Simulated assay, not measured.
Amino acid sequence: MIIADENIPLAVIEKLRLSHVETYSIFENKRGISDKEIIDFAQHPPKIILTEDKDFGDLVFAYDQKKVSVILLRYHYSDLERI
């Protein structure tokens, strides 16, 4: 399962879902929770965090979270459709 951080555009989340990728949206379900809470949520069972926030990589390593993976998206807004 992928956990889409609050900063992931809904268009990306919808494309993932249309591609049959199980995607949980923080924006839709748990808006306002902390990054640490997202990391905790991503552990049981292990999930992938999809984010535009570079701090997640640092946090995962700082808290020694071996069960959590992070995909960091970096793109120009005009490339959104290609993502």
Score class of each variant (00 low, 15 high):
Met1Thr: 14
Met1Glu: 15
Ile2His: 08
Ile2Asp: 03
Ile2Trp: 09
Ala4Lys: 02
Ala4Gln: 04
Asp5Lys: 00
Glu6Tyr: 08
Glu6Ser: 15
Ile8Glu: 02
Ile8Gln: 05
Pro9Met: 12
Pro9Gly: 11
Lys15Leu: 14
Lys15Val: 10
Lys15Tyr: 13
Leu16Asn: 07
Leu16Trp: 07
His20Pro: 11
Val21His: 07
Val21Met: 06
Thr23Ala: 07
Thr23His: 06
Ser25Phe: 05
Ser25Gln: 11
Ser25Met: 11
Ile26Cys: 03
Phe27Ile: 12
Phe27Trp: 12
Phe27Arg: 10
Glu28Asp: 13
Glu28Ser: 12
Asn29Gly: 08
Asn29Val: 06
Lys30Gln: 11
Lys30Thr: 10
Lys30His: 14
Arg31Asp: 06
Arg31Asn: 11
Arg31Glu: 05
Gly32Leu: 07
Gly32Met: 04
Gly32Thr: 07
Lys36Ile: 13
Glu37Ile: 06
Glu37Asp: 07
Ile39Trp: 01
Ile39Ala: 04
Asp40Arg: 09
Phe41Trp: 10
Ala42Asp: 09
Gln43Ala: 11
Gln43Ile: 10
His44Leu: 05
His44Phe: 08
Pro46Ile: 11
Ile49Lys: 01
Leu50Lys: 01
Glu52Cys: 09
Glu52Asp: 04
Glu52Arg: 12
Asp53Ser: 09
Asp53Pro: 03
Lys54Asn: 06
Asp55Pro: 01
Phe56Val: 02
Phe56Met: 04
Phe56Trp: 01
Gly57Tyr: 08
Gly57Glu: 05
Leu59Glu: 01
Leu59Lys: 01
Val60Ser: 00
Val60Tyr: 00
Val60Ala: 01
Ala62Gly: 04
Tyr63Gly: 06
Tyr63Pro: 01
Asp64His: 14
Asp64Gln: 14
Gln65Val: 06
Lys67Arg: 14
Ser69Thr: 12
Ser69Asp: 08
Ser69Leu: 11
Val70Lys: 00
Leu73Cys: 06
Leu73Met: 07
Leu73Tyr: 03
Tyr75Val: 02
His76Leu: 04
Tyr77Val: 12
Ser78Trp: 11
Ser78Ile: 13
Leu80Glu: 03
Glu81Val: 10
Glu81Arg: 10
Ile83Tyr: 03
